[in-house]
Structures are given as C-alpha cells and as structure tokens.
Simulated assay, not measured.
Amino acid sequence: MGIGIVLMIQPHWDTNNLWSELVRISQQSPATVGIVGGILLIVWLLLLWQFYQQTKLSELIVAVNKLVPQVGDTKSQGLQVKRWGRRLQPLAENVNGVFEAAQQAMVEEHEIERSKDEMVTNVSHDLRTPLTSILGYLGLIINDSEQQKLQREEIMKYAQTAFDKSGQMQSLVEDLFDYTQVHQVDFKLHWAPLDLAALLQQLAVNYELEAEEKGVVISAVSNPTVIEMVGDPDRLARVFMNLINNAFKYGEGATFVRLSAKVMPDDNQVEIRVTNNGAKIPDESIKRLFDRFYRVEGSRNTKTGGTGLGLAIVNGVINAHGGQVRVESDDAITSFIINLPLTPEEDELPD
C-alpha cells in the first residue's frame, strides 16, 4: 500500500522498472518517503493495538461466561482484575461487583429458604404439641361422659389445661398474622395522638398478676409524666407486650421488669427501655435477635415455645414508625431500647 501511495504522488515515471523508480524517488524525495513510511507505521501499530484489544475483550467475554455457573459457589473469587490491562480493568471490576452482588443475593436467598423451612418446622411443632394435649384432655372428658369415673376437680383440671393450650395456639396464630401484615408492601399504620406514659403505665398494671405469679416486680416510669406523641396505639402496645413477654419467658432469674420512657427534646424523640435483670443474652446472638424466625440457641423448650417472630414484629413496627430498636445485655441488665419520633415525617402520614 505504501508503494502505491508513493507512486501515485509521482506525476510521471522516469524509468521503466518499478524497483528502479522507487529507488530514484527515494533518492530525490527522501522526506516524502519518510513521511509516508511513518504514517504507514502508525496505522499498522494502531491496527495491531486494536486487534490486541479485541482479542483481550473476547477473552474477557469468555471469562465472564465461565463465571456464570460459579455464582452459587461462595468460594469463587471472580476475575483477576490486573490481568486485563488498564483499559479493560474498570470493566473487569464492574463484572466482579455484579458477580459478588449475585453471590450475596444467592446466599441471602438460601438463608431465607432455610429460615422458612425452620419456621415451618417450628410452627408445625408448636401447633401440634398443644393440639395433641387439647385433643387428649378433651377426649378423656368426652369418653367419661358415660362411665362418669372422673371427679369434677379432674374434669375442671383437664378443661383448664385444654383452655391454656388453646391460648398458646391463639398466640402463635396471632404472631404469624401480625408478622405477615407488618411485612406486606402496602402495610400502613393507623396514626393517632397518644399518651405514651399512660400506655406504659396501663401495660404494667395489666401484667401485675402474671408478674406476681412469676415472682417478678413490673413497673413503669416516665419523664415527663405525660408524653404526647403520634403513632399507632395498637401496634405500639403489641410491641411493648412482646418485649414484656420476652422478659418473662427468657429473663431467667429476673426479679424485675421495668418500662421507662424519657423525652429527648433536642432530637424530638422519645427513648423507651424495657429492662430486666435476668440472664444475659449471648453476644453472638445479639446481632441476629431481630431476624425473622431467629431464636437464641437453647431458648426453645416446652415452656417457652414460639416461632421467633416476636422481635421481628417489634422491629417491623418500630421501623414503620420511623424509629430504631436495639438491645444491650450484660451479666447485670438486659435492655431493649427503642427510639421513636414524637411526630412522624409528613410523608409517613396518610393523605
């Protein structure tokens, strides 16, 4: 091609031989030949560089295709970024970012499936156990209707046991219902003005009898004595009831349960604490306490039962209010700490 360009710029040939003509032109116009040669060298290098980039890009595409089946393998490290050069390195980094995100999504999906399977097992167990008792004790009463060998006290005892087991089943069903409601996309709160201090005092009064039976003193204290805020009274009451029930169930050795609230005027927030002096929550469990279906290892037994949804419901309701919930636990005190805005953001209120 270079020879053709040199000959084209030549108006006429002075020789009859192509090679002789090229030699003559190079002797007469060395600058022209040098310029044409330099241009041709640059074009050739650009073409070579382009070919190299296309080759590397093709290799990168092949490497990406090989990564696809490895998404489910958490040990796979993705692409080696430095291998692809300066121009393709950002693309390789982006591919790795997408790959890692897909891996994380797969891990989370597997964890959700595992949690759901565990939940189904727990629910099946917690429904079957009281249901078996209910059927058993009611069967004893019905089968004795003709023989009448049972004393009235025995009949009342069996009936009371069946009634108590029915309450366990009702509590389980309510937890499942509340959990599904709180985690629906269109979940909405019923906003209304309320006195938080009065709500906590009423809850403490409602649990006095149960606390006395367990040898626990329950109390409520607020600063100031009237705390006016806007929220969903029913949902918030259920939150505090769940935390009180948790303190009774899992606060082994506790002698008191205290509900306290104080206004944080600088932040336009109120801080509520549900505190007990029972057994410490293991450090490794604190980060997962509010995960759905999670329960502290060893907490599941015939006395406590449950599906591990109570704290997930608490977290969902508090988040819907624009607040936060956390837990602090040591050998002396365990506190569930809730921060709520006294008034919600305007976009959270109904139209």
Rank of each mutant, 00 (worst) to 15 (best):
Q89C: 00
V81D: 07
V71I: 15
Q27N: 13
P350E: 11
L22K: 09
S329G: 10
S299E: 13
I218Q: 01
E109V: 05
D164T: 08
A198V: 05
H12W: 11
E212F: 14
F163Y: 14
L349T: 10
D126F: 04
I112F: 12
L289M: 13
D267L: 12
L57A: 14
Q202C: 00
L236D: 03
L140N: 03
T74E: 14
T343V: 13
N65R: 13
Q324A: 08
M169S: 11
Y137G: 03
E118I: 04
F248L: 10
A192W: 14
Q54A: 04
F248C: 00
I61G: 00
L127M: 06
L176S: 08
G136C: 05
K82V: 04
V173G: 06
S58D: 06
I337C: 07
E328W: 13
A162W: 03
I338Y: 04
F240G: 01
N122A: 11
G298C: 07
N206M: 10
I141R: 02
A237K: 15
I338V: 13
A63G: 01
R24C: 02
E174M: 06
L41I: 11
N245Q: 12
K66P: 00
F187A: 15
S171W: 12
D234A: 15
K149G: 05
L60V: 08
L79Q: 01
I318W: 01
E208L: 07
K56H: 00
Q89G: 04
Y207M: 00
A92S: 08
F290C: 15
F248V: 01
V325P: 01
A197C: 08
V314E: 00
N17Q: 12
I338D: 01
S329C: 05
Q28L: 13
P224M: 08
D331W: 11
L176H: 06
T15F: 13
N268T: 05
